[in-house]
Structures are given as C-alpha cells and as structure tokens.
C-alpha cells in the first residue's frame, strides 16, 4: 500500500497484486467452507445429512429450525438468546468503562507506585482464571449469586479483564503527548483532558474492547458452565452443550440449526460495528 500506491499512468497489470488476490481468494474458499457447511447442514433433511458429500441440500428442511426454536429442556431459544444478551451487554459496559479509566491513569498520569501497579496489572493478564475460580465461586455462593448472572457481569465493572486495560494503555501511548500538553496549557485538568481529548481519540481501542468483550462473553462456556445450572438461566452456549454428548449424525439437523442461531447475534454485532472499526482505524492517523 505504501510506496507502490502511485502507479504509472501506463496502466500495466500489476501481476504481484493479482497473485495476492488469487492467493487470498483461494485461502478464503478453504477457510469459509466450514461455515458454508454449517449453514447447508442446518437446512438438510435427516436422510441427506448422512449421505453427505454434496454441500447443498436438495430441498430446504425448515423442520430443523422449528425443532431448534423449541429450545432445550422446555426453555425457548428466545429465552436462551436473551440470557446470553443480558450477560454480554453487561460485560461490554463494564469493560469499556472500567478499562478506559484505568488505562488513562497508567498511560498518562503520574502517581506513587505507578511502576509496581502497572507490573501488577500486566501480571494479572497472564493470570489464568482458574487460579481465582474456586475462591470466587465460594464468595459468590455465599452472596447467593450462584445461578444468577452477577458472577459473569460484576467483575467486568472492576476491570478484571486486565488485557483490555493493557490494550487501551498501548493505544493511548500512541496518542501524541503534544495534545495533552496543549490541553493543559488551555487549562484542562486530568478529567477534562480525559473526556475531551484522550477518550475520543481512543475510540478504536474502546470499540476493540467492546467487540472482543461481547464475542468472548457470548462464546464463553467455562464460567457459564460453572455458575449457571437452572435451565431458565441457561445461555445459548449452555443449551448447545447438551448436543456434545450425542455424536449420532441423526441429530445433526436441529443441532446445527441451533448452532446457526447461536452465531447470528455475533455476525450481526460485527456487521453493525464494522463501520466504526474501520472509521476508528482511519482516525488513528492523526499524527501532528
């Protein structure tokens, strides 16, 4: 993209670039095949699933979806999706707010113990959740919060996903210091500098945080498996879990119909935020 951009007016074919396109398209075909297979299988009637090799079903079997919509254990799919949405939305809010606050302090402000605390924050990134899992479970259990959504959402408001703090710190470090200094000269304190200068410029990092948090929380299985046990509280991921034990191909239709349903919100979420993602990245070219 960089130096090659201005191609000569002679309009010669750039074979290197054609090669890149061919390679990328070929890679895409292979990579996206599992997704095509998933969608196709979700529409296949039971007898066609097993005699497989053909990707496309001969007729669309909507029955897989009507079966899937009934949900699992008497809980409808809408309820399962709703539960997943509540948890994921809460997690996004928590992470965006708490992580950007902490990141600003680490990236721009001076305070005692800054070095050690930053090291502590970095260290908690590598902390496997399993090391805190059991004591946290005991505490949430005593608070009567097991089998509620609180253990899955509350920690996000306390910036426990230190990875996002780090990501945002890294991004804020890239914002020219001259902007802060200009704001200080104009009489802005740390708070106004944060809300007026740093936060708007950090939008790409905040959006990245939001997207990753949403997807990871939506896809998360381990914590939901441990904290939620009543079907009423199940998420769509936990509902899919009931298919893990069965490997018979006769269950493929409804199983993959529900899998498609489970993936839809992620796809929609990404498509909705894609514009902001691109715009955010473009706006990061604000070099003085």
């Amino acid at each position: 993209m960089v130096a090659v951009r201005e191609s000569l007016p002679g309009r010669r074919i750039d074979w290197a670039r054609v090669g890149l396109h061919v390679g990328c398209l070929a890679a895409l075909l292979v990579m996206l095949y599992p997704l095509a297979w998933l969608i196709a299988t979700s529409f296949k009637p039971a007898d066609e699933v097993i005699s497989s090799l053909r990707l496309l079903p001969s007729r669309l079997a909507m029955s897989n979806y009507t079966t899937a919509l009934e949900g699992v254990g008497g809980v409808s799919v809408l309820r399962l999706i709703g539960n997943s949405l509540i948890i994921s939305t809460g997690a996004v809010l928590g992470n965006v707010i708490s992580c950007s606050l902490a990141a600003y302090a680490f990236a721009r402000l001076r305070f005692t113990l800054r070095g050690p605390l930053f090291a502590l924050m970095l260290a908690t990134i590598m902390l496997p959740q399993h090391a805190v899992l059991i004591p946290q479970y005991i505490v949430f259990n005593q608070l009567g919060m097991v089998n509620t959504f609180w253990p899955l959402v509350l920690p996000k408001f306390l910036a426990t996903d230190a990875f996002f703090v780090f990501l945002t710190v890294q991004f804020m470090r890239g914002i020219p210091k001259e902007l802060d200094e200009a704001a200080t000269l104009d009489g802005c304190g740390p708070f106004r500098t944060f809300f007026r200068i740093i936060l708007p410029l950090s939008r790409p990092a905040l959006i990245t945080t939001a997207i990753f948090t949403f997807i990871w929380t939506w896809n998360d299985f381990f914590l939901q498996l441990i904290y939620l046990f009543e079907p009423e509280k199940f998420t769509i991921t936990l509902a899919l879990r009931s298919f893990v034990d069965t490997s018979s191909q006769s269950a493929y239709g409804p199983m993959f119909a529900m899998s498609v349903i489970a993936l839809l919100p992620i796809v929609l979420f990404f498509m909705a935020f894609q514009r902001f993602l691109v715009e955010g990245m473009a706006s990061s070219g604000v070099k003085g």
Binding site: M121, Q136, A159, A162, P190
Partner: peptide
C-alpha cells in the same frame, strides 16, 4: 494528577484486591 490518578484507578484497584 496524583489525586486524579487514584480516582481513575479505583475500579481496577478494587477488582485487583477483591477479585
């Protein structure tokens, strides 16, 4: 700045200590 820093840090600090 020192005072402000602790305000910005407080959610993370609480989480780090308690969770």
């Amino acid at each position: 700045r020192e005072g402000a820093a602790w305000v910005f840090l407080s959610p993370w600090l609480l989480g780090a200590a308690v969770l």
